[in-house]
Computed example of a mutant assay.
Amino acid sequence: MTIIADILLVAGAVGAGFYCLVLSRRLRRFSDLEKGVGGAVAVLSAQVDDLSRTLNAAQNTAKGSVDRLDDVSARAEAAGKRLELLVASLHDLPGPAEKPNEETAFFRRRGTGGEARQ
């Protein structure tokens, strides 16, 4: 009976050793920097860094655009105020001269014979 127990104990130990060997190889492949999760984490980390730099550049560009837009808007408001003043000052000018009416206009033309015509 002890021989059977010893054989089963040795078989269990060999099985556990084989199981540990398989797990070790899988874990090594899993954490491999080239192909496994370690490689994916390294690639994602590089992409996050690139994305952060791109986002910072976009924020700086947007901030510059907002500043320029504020400047242009202020200049446009100032120009609008000047135009309002100019239009308001046009109301103070006299209107255009009236066109002569055909009934009020009186022209005399002399013909060849010295007669006056209307």
Rank of each mutant, 00 (worst) to 15 (best):
residue 55 L to C: 03
residue 27 L to M: 09
residue 14 V to D: 04
residue 92 D to M: 05
residue 92 D to E: 15
residue 35 K to I: 04
residue 23 L to A: 08
residue 31 S to W: 15
residue 84 E to P: 00
residue 20 C to V: 11
residue 22 V to Q: 10
residue 64 G to L: 10
residue 58 A to I: 03
residue 58 A to W: 05
residue 6 D to F: 01
residue 2 T to E: 15
residue 97 A to I: 05
residue 3 I to L: 12
residue 66 V to I: 12
residue 29 R to M: 07
residue 96 P to H: 02
residue 28 R to I: 05
residue 57 A to Y: 03
residue 81 K to D: 13
residue 100 P to T: 04
residue 24 S to H: 09
residue 96 P to M: 02
residue 54 T to L: 14
residue 70 D to K: 13
residue 94 P to H: 01
residue 57 A to W: 05
residue 99 K to A: 10
residue 80 G to W: 10
residue 28 R to S: 12
residue 87 V to D: 03
residue 109 R to D: 00
residue 5 A to D: 13
residue 47 Q to C: 04
residue 49 D to H: 03
residue 25 R to L: 12
residue 44 L to Y: 04
residue 4 I to M: 02
residue 10 V to N: 14
residue 80 G to L: 09
residue 42 A to F: 07
residue 103 E to M: 01
residue 66 V to A: 09
residue 40 A to T: 12
residue 18 F to G: 06
residue 47 Q to W: 08
residue 14 V to E: 09
residue 64 G to H: 05
residue 35 K to S: 11
residue 1 M to C: 05
residue 32 D to M: 00
residue 19 Y to R: 04
residue 23 L to T: 03
residue 3 I to K: 15
residue 110 R to H: 10
residue 72 V to I: 14
residue 109 R to L: 12
residue 102 E to A: 03
residue 69 L to T: 13
residue 60 N to Q: 07
residue 117 R to S: 05
residue 101 N to W: 08
residue 16 A to H: 01
residue 86 L to V: 06
residue 77 E to F: 07
residue 112 T to S: 11
residue 64 G to E: 13
residue 97 A to D: 14
residue 48 V to T: 06
residue 28 R to V: 05
residue 100 P to M: 01
residue 70 D to I: 04
residue 79 A to Y: 02
residue 1 M to Q: 13
residue 2 T to P: 14
residue 64 G to D: 14
residue 116 A to G: 00
residue 61 T to E: 14
residue 91 H to S: 14
residue 51 L to Q: 09
residue 102 E to L: 06
residue 71 D to C: 01
residue 66 V to Y: 07
residue 34 E to M: 06
residue 107 F to V: 10
residue 49 D to M: 02
